[in-house]
Nucleic acid binder design. Structure first.
Length: 282
DNA sequence: AATTGTTCCAACCGCCCTATA
DNA sequence: TTATAGGGCGGTTGGAACAAT
């Protein structure tokens, strides 16, 4: 059966929203709920496409949204999370009550990128420019320990993975950003309240792996994350075997636990790894 | 006061994944 | 299994507001 077209844009209004249109969305959304966005504009008496209505609602009109400026604490959280998982704005916004992914993305693009650059920090790698230059000078001389390896050298690289350092080399204060050399702190010293960051780190690693793995043309890729669970240290080794862009074909892999010393099968349904999967691996 | 340059953010675009028929 | 719609997401843009000249 063929469904009606979702976004027939011909003759539909675009651009900035008027107060009258906002009032219609609010009145209908609060009274009847959202339901199907495609059907929403007609029910609410709007000549916009459903996608446009959804955007207006989620980014501006829905209840409990904050419209005031970002606080220093929110700034710091955004930078830390971006350093951990990159531009996964919906996940970052989930940690900031009342903020939307669009808010966070805009704030990053207009303020925080410049602020980091002004501090001499690269907003992509979150490393000082000086360190990037130094690393660049060492290309070819250092192994990519802990990120990529052959199966035959497992023991040596397990050791490297345990010593893996966190990615963010600085912290932010209420007065601005300040460097505290926290990159020298081993992952095991991160307080227990930082657990969500470990989970996010896992998302980043697995996502990077899934983006770069090609079974046909390159050897299997192995990626590490370290995690604590019930006072036992586990080294989780995610072994990705399949490029995930193939629709409906799960990403196959395995995790290795230092506690059990066994590989366990791991199936990742798609590249956009959800938090629940990473919690399962812990 | 007029012009030009810059900043900011709401909204759009296009791609992707999932659900459904 | 395939085709299609719905919805989520990251990147980008248009234009209003503000600042500088």
């Amino acid at each position: 059966m063929v469904r009606p077209a979702c976004c027939e844009k011909l003759h539909l209004k675009r651009g900035l929203w008027t107060e009258e249109e906002d009032a219609k969305i609010l009145a209908h959304g609060l009274k009847h709920g959202i339901g199907n966005w495609t059907a929403f504009p007609k029910k609410a008496g709007l000549t916009r496409c459903g996608k446009s209505c959804r955007l207006r609602w989620t980014n501006y009109l829905r209840p409990n949204l904050k419209h005031e400026s970002f606080t220093p604490h929110e700034e710091e959280l955004i930078v830390r999370l971006h350093a951990t998982i990159g531009s996964r704005w919906p996940i970052i916004a989930q940690q900031l009550p009342g903020r939307t992914d669009n808010d966070v993305k805009n704030y990053w693009n207009t303020k925080l990128k410049k602020k980091l650059s002004g501090m001499g920090i690269d907003h992509v790698t979150h490393k000082p420019f000086s360190q990037i230059l130094a690393d660049y000078g060492n290309i070819g001389g250092l192994p990519k320990a802990g990120m990529r390896m052959a199966i035959g050298s497992l023991n040596k690289d397990l050791k490297n993975a345990i010593l893996m350092k966190p990615e963010l080399p600085y912290s932010l204060s209420t007065q601005g950003f300040s460097n505290i050399n926290s990159h020298l702190m081993p992952m095991t010293m991160i307080p227990i309240k930082m657990e969500p960051f470990k989970t996010l780190q896992a998302i980043r690693l697995v996502t990077e792996a899934s983006n770069s793995t090609n079974l046909e043309s390159s050897p299997p890729n192995l990626y590490f994350m370290k995690a604590h669970c019930h006072h036992h240290h586990h080294l989780l080794l995610v072994h990705l075997l399949r490029k995930s862009r193939q629709p409906r074909r799960p990403l196959a892999g395995a995790i290795f636990s230092l506690k059990t010393r066994f590989f366990q099968p791991l199936m990742l349904k798609n590249t956009r790894i959800k938090l629940s999967i990473c919690r399962w691996t812990c």
